[in-house]
Amino acid sequence: MTRQFSFLDQALIGADRGLKTLIKGSAKAARAMPQAKPSQADGTAAARQSEAQRRHTAGLMRINHTGEVCAQALYQGQALTAKSAQVREAMAQSAIEEVDHLAWCETRLKELGAHTSHLNPLFYAASFTIGAVAGAIGDSVSLGFVAATEDQVCEHLKEHLAALPKEDEKTRVVLSQMLEDEAEHASKAMSAGGLAFPLPVKKVMTLMSKVMTKTTYHV
């Protein structure tokens, strides 16, 4: 039988997951980080990358890492206020699956000698609030918000894949797997009864995401 948690229990669990999201090194992936073929990830290919290219890749991965921080916060906020137990469980499961991405991005940033964004706590707080509000409005809105958000993440990942230096297969295989997972999450949310958001709402979400990408690329 599935254990029923009180609102306080859920809040404490969410706080614990929030700390694990924001504290460096706390995220532990359940799946192994995708690896490029040895012939593609050898030292020669890495050596061909200029310092400017490495900084650019690090900036892209910092954006992706913050995106995963926001995803964790969004799911935790939605799980806290979701109307049905089924949706709460779905949000909690999605958050667990996204931990892989969080850990992979952090690992790749370390390999590039770069840091995660200093703005992550602010984006976590904002995303948690948005998720909690969406969950309180209703499950269809909450699920629709997940789908719309994941669609935007997929677009960012496609852009980043196109912008990567061709020699950087180590980053490419990670982003490719993330893209596949995010597309699946969006599809599942809509299949579960998510509301299709109108274009004006999606445009506002796009503008908000641009604020995140522009700031976290450098900071």
Rank of each mutant, 00 (worst) to 15 (best):
R3Q: 14
Q4R: 07
Q10S: 09
L12G: 04
K20M: 14
R31S: 15
A32F: 09
M33A: 11
P34E: 07
Q35S: 12
A36N: 06
K37G: 04
D42G: 09
Q49H: 00
Q53E: 15
H56P: 00
R62V: 07
E68Y: 08
L74I: 09
Y75E: 03
Q76A: 15
L80C: 01
A82K: 03
K83V: 03
A90R: 10
A90G: 00
A90M: 15
M91R: 04
I96G: 00
H101F: 04
L102S: 03
T107M: 08
R108N: 03
T116A: 01
P121N: 08
L122K: 06
A126G: 10
T129L: 15
G135P: 09
A136K: 15
G138S: 10
D139M: 02
V141S: 06
V146H: 02
A147Y: 02
A148P: 04
E155A: 11
L157F: 05
A163Y: 00
E167H: 12
V173P: 08
S176V: 02
M178T: 05
H185Y: 05
K188I: 11
K188R: 14
A189S: 11
M190K: 10
A196C: 06
F197D: 01
F197R: 10
P198L: 10
P200E: 13
K202P: 01
V204F: 14
T213K: 10
H218V: 14
